[in-house]
Amino acid sequence: MQNETVLNQLQFLLGTLRDGKKGFADAAAHATSPDLAQLLTARSEQRGTFERQIAEQITALGGKPDQHSSLGAALHRTWLNIRDALSGRDDHAVLAECVRGEGVAVENFTDVLSEMELPADLRALIQHQFAAVKESHTQLLDMQNQVG
């Protein structure tokens, strides 16, 4: 196992978590239901905690945590801003975007966990975060189906 490979994968997860934190904060700001806004704010805060945990692991391995989001997420947010300017948002649309974002996060965590041999403590941390992301994805999908 190469330290550089592990660091690259952790940077990848760091960007995923940072994008999730920003995405959930944006979604909370656009939610019309106070309960949904509160849930999405809590998810943003959770992703912030996960982000800090991964950044600590990167530092412990001798790396420097990247300070930016992924390019793909930045492009997606730009597309959403254009779409929103034309069509506006309702809670179903907000949930749909959260479900889509969580689906990408699930894929990213799956890729890291399936493609890499990781130290046991690091694997445990990533698996814990992955379980929370999967649970979030399922809950948001259920909520979207109920709203829609």
Rank of each mutant, 00 (worst) to 15 (best):
T5P: 05
T32G: 15
D19A: 10
G20C: 04
K22C: 07
L7T: 06
L14Y: 00
E45W: 04
G20P: 01
F12M: 10
V6D: 02
Q11T: 08
S33L: 11
R43M: 04
Q46R: 13
A27L: 11
A31F: 03
R18E: 04
L7C: 02
A25V: 10
L40S: 00
S44K: 02
Q11S: 11
G20W: 06
T5A: 14
N8S: 12
A27V: 08
F24C: 06
E4R: 12
N3Q: 15
T41M: 02
Q38P: 04
G15S: 09
S33F: 10
L39K: 07
T41E: 09
S44C: 05
A29Y: 13
Q46T: 03
L13Y: 03
Q11C: 05
R43A: 03
V6Q: 09
T32S: 13
A25Q: 14
L10N: 08
L13E: 10
Q38N: 09
L14H: 11
A25E: 12
L7M: 07
G23E: 03
D26V: 14
H30P: 12
A42P: 03
N3L: 14
T16S: 01
A25F: 12
A37K: 04
D26Q: 14
Q9P: 09
G20D: 01
G15D: 04
H30L: 15
K21E: 13
G20F: 07
E45F: 02
S44Q: 01
T16K: 06
R18T: 10
L39I: 07
G23L: 02
R47F: 04
T5I: 13
G48S: 00
N3Y: 06
L40V: 01
G20L: 09
A31P: 08
E4N: 13
L39T: 11
R47W: 05
Q11I: 01
Q38L: 02
L17C: 03
D26L: 15
